[in-house]
Amino acid sequence: MPILAGKELRIVGFLCNWCSYGGADTAGVGRFSQPTDLRIIRVPCSGRIDPLFIVKTLLYGADGVLVSGCHPRDCHYGQGNFYARRRLEALKRFLPIIGVEPGRFEYTWVSASEGQRWQQVVQGFTEQVHALGPSPASAVFGACREIPDEKGGPRVAV
């Protein structure tokens, strides 16, 4: 089912379960209204996010990818967000090389108590992606998208 044509862009969020997913829940409980573009994928820790997931998401045609984890030093697993920060920083520098505008990917830290901050993050990122408009990637890379169905199949085919 398509995103709402003309209204929404395709924005995918990868959120850690303990802080940011909770922060997004807190925003919901507080009824902090947000744009409807974002779809959230829950992962246990920002350290679980392989940068290649983000690359694939962008190549599959997402117009923006937002990653959010626990604040540094506040990781439920102690160090996961430090790994994430390093990986995502490297990714940030890599994306322009493959032709993705820098504004299409952001990562941030939001704790489970920061509902209002989450609202601002979503609002800001959505506006940023809308300013860039639809991503040209899906047209260019539309061909290279097959998903291995069996566990242990080929990994990310980028």
Partner: peptide, 11 residues
């Protein structure tokens, strides 16, 4: 595979 399947479902 599960995470990429979720990505695929969205995209």
């Amino acid at each position: 595979n599960q995470i990429l399947a979720e990505v695929n479902a969205l995209c």
